[in-house]
Simulated assay, not measured.
Amino acid sequence: MLKAYKYRIYPTKEQEESFFQHFGACRFVYNWALENKIKSYEQNDKSVSRFTLNKMITELKEEHTWLKDVNSQSLQGATLNLETAFTKFFREKKGFPNFKSKKNPVQSFSVPQFYEVDFDNNKVKLPKIGWIKTKLHRKFKGIEKTATLSRTPTGKYYISILVDDEQETPVKSLFNEKVTVGIDIGIKDFAILSNGKKIDNPKYLKTSIQRLHVLQRRMSRKQKGSKNRAKARNAVSKLHEKISNQRNDFQHKLSSKLIGENQALALETLNVSGMLKNHCLALHIADASWSSFVTKLEYKAEWFGKTILRIGQFEPSTKICNVCGYHNKNLTLADREWQCPDCKTNHDRDVNAAINIKKSALNKQNLIGI
């Protein structure tokens, strides 16, 4: 299986300059490759392959000699990233690749090979840069693949190493109704389980929103290009980073707990991008970051041989009585509890939805009652 290990690195000033040189060169090659692909398609109705672009980089170095100071494997990694972006565009409809800007607060470049990791001395060696002080807080075993070095908006540097641990993906565990849990994600409560348990939504962004507004107003009053504006921008970035770290920590702990306690998890497919167009709820939906949580559940389920079951986004899980199947068409978002007119069962809106999600997912697997 492939797993990524992320470590913080502490470069010297000279190494930082080399990082920025790599960031700029890889960004330049990416934009150059994207321009070539667009022109080739417009003129010949054909796209230039990544391998052709890699051969053209040699000629590009003669024109721009400063590219020779950068690791050649990193430059080829830029064309690979572009190829991946086009694949997502055609297969997953993720949006046409955009040109990269040096104003982007997050910069990165990849090192496909020829790097070394020294756990004993807490150092990582990168080609053209040398040994860099690194906080190697955990060891890994396996074949080292691509390493990606990145810089955050707050000026911190990280290296993410992709490792093949040479282990086969675990066989999916058998599951039935007793070891399956339905999960309804929401805003008031972050997650509601089919067993009736509710996980509070910490709402980290809402907690820090007033402080964030203060820092943003301070930044807007500073003169553009000044050092004070840079300091104010860094303060805003630090708060955003803190919120992101809090959210990720919460989601990692919750997802690990749910994966460890159940053999299968039933989820509802949500159109998050469409829901974000609701201006009344967009802030709360973005704060919850449902897509990120589902992604964590999916890859952790693959690691531990668990199963993720999905139901369609148009199934009315909230409005159907989980006892008799009555469809309450008049239920609104304000109704948190309701009574079924047929069987007189009192329902908690979210718990009822979680139970229906579980039943619907198991029904598709022909596992109801097993």
Rank of each mutant, 00 (worst) to 15 (best):
I199F: 15
T207D: 08
S194C: 10
Y204W: 00
L205A: 04
R218M: 14
R218C: 14
L205S: 01
K203C: 08
R211G: 14
Q223V: 03
H213N: 14
A191I: 07
D200K: 13
I192A: 11
H213G: 14
Q210G: 13
R217W: 01
R229G: 04
K198P: 14
K227T: 08
K198F: 10
I199V: 13
K206W: 00
S220D: 05
R218L: 15
R229A: 10
Q223H: 03
M219H: 05
K206D: 04
Y204I: 01
R211Y: 08
Q216F: 12
S194R: 06
G225N: 07
L205V: 02
N201E: 03
R218K: 15
S208R: 08
I199T: 02
L212E: 00
K203H: 02
S226K: 09
Q223Y: 01
K197Y: 12
N201G: 07
H213S: 15
N228S: 02
P202T: 03
D200V: 11
S208I: 05
S194G: 14
Q223G: 06
R217D: 10
S194N: 11
R229I: 03
K206H: 00
S194K: 07
I192C: 15
Q216E: 11
R221W: 06
L193W: 02
G196I: 02
Q223E: 05
Q216D: 10
H213K: 15
K198S: 08
P202I: 04
I192V: 15
V214I: 15
S208P: 09
H213T: 05
S194T: 04
L193C: 09
Q216P: 13
A191R: 04
L215F: 03
R229K: 09
D200W: 01
L193I: 07
Q216K: 14
L205M: 03
K198Y: 11
F190M: 05
D200P: 07
L215D: 09
T207I: 09
L193T: 07
D200I: 14
R221M: 09
A230N: 05
R218Q: 12
R211F: 04
D200Q: 13
S194A: 15
L205K: 00
I192F: 05
K197H: 12
I199H: 11
A191W: 00
D200C: 13
D189Y: 05
D189W: 01
A191T: 08
R217C: 15
A191H: 00
D189I: 02
D200F: 12
I209V: 11
G225A: 08
N195L: 06
A230E: 04
A230Y: 03
Q216S: 13
R221L: 15
G225P: 02
Q210M: 12
